[in-house]
């Protein structure tokens, strides 16, 4: 299914070229903003690398991946219902986890490639990376992405059940950008709302990622954040899969797998 998505995506050549151009256009302003605000922000981000440009680059790289994790599945299900491909896939013996992986795989892989390019562009523009922490950094990014996949599972269930995701993925991503320390550290958020940031998975993910990649922190120093992320993944994935299975059962009962 990932291959089919790739085949379809590459057939729209102009769109593919433009997606790389926009990537470039997105990183350059980040460079100027990062450099301009670095003196102001350095103190408040001292525990997350101390370099505001690097801080921003990692935030900008991870957000589209998180958005893909939350938004791809409901979009794919809605499209599959509209075209009839979902029904044909449900007629095959493929299991639900494999179906979910197939429907989301391409977007996540494409998002990961774009995130890697953003980081490489950042490095080219002077961002310092602790390459020794790359493997751990990738694990943290994977866990962060997986932490948002359940949002997609629940949104996918909503699409199956009500034909709308009720803007759930967008809400999750906007809330995460606002509260999760993407463009600024969570320490600058007003105290009364900061407690909410403590339950947003991207807060843990970005904090750990920045420590590992920008500060060369050891595994032990991020074990708390990684553990919280892993726990969040475990609990919410079970809930998300339950929601999706229930919705599938409902549409099979109602006979609406092909109705849009």
């Amino acid at each position: 299914m990932m291959r089919m998505e790739w085949i379809t995506a590459r057939s729209y050549r102009l769109r593919m070229v433009l997606s790389f151009v926009t990537l470039l256009l997105a990183v350059v302003p980040v460079y100027f903003i990062g450099r301009a605000l670095d003196p102001t922000m350095a103190a408040s981000i001292s525990t997350e690398g101390g370099d505001y440009f690097g801080f921003l680059v990692l935030g900008v790289a991870v957000v589209p991946l998180v958005a893909a994790a939350a938004g791809t599945l409901p979009a794919a299900i809605a499209s599959g219902i509209g075209t009839g491909t979902l029904e044909t896939q449900l007629c095959t013996p493929i299991g639900l986890p494999a179906l979910v992986a197939g429907l989301c795989g391409y977007s996540l892989a494409w998002g990961a490639l774009r995130a890697a390019l953003v980081v490489l562009l950042g490095v080219a523009l002077g961002m310092h990376i602790a390459w020794s922490g790359l493997a751990l950094g990738m694990v943290i990014v994977l866990l962060t992405v997986l932490a948002y996949l359940p949002v997609g599972l629940v949104a996918g269930a909503l699409v199956l059940r009500f034909r709308t995701a009720a803007e759930l993925p967008k809400l999750a991503v906007y809330a995460s950008v606002f509260l999760g320390g993407v463009y600024y550290p969570t320490s600058v958020i007003p105290t009364w709302i900061r407690h909410l940031a403590d339950v947003v998975p991207i807060s843990f993910g970005l904090r750990a990622l920045r420590r590992v990649l920008l500060q060369d922190a050891s595994v032990s120093s991020v074990v708390g954040d990684v553990g919280a992320l892993a726990l969040s993944v475990a609990v919410t994935t079970v809930i998300g899969m339950y929601a999706l299975r229930s919705a599938l059962r409902h549409v099979r009962q109602a006979g609406t797998t092909g109705q849009y």
Binding site: I7, T8, T83, G84, T88, C91, G258
Partner: peptide
Amino acid sequence: LVGTDERSLFWRA
């Protein structure tokens, strides 16, 4: 199951 929904094919592949 074979229906008549041609859209269930991937047209750009």
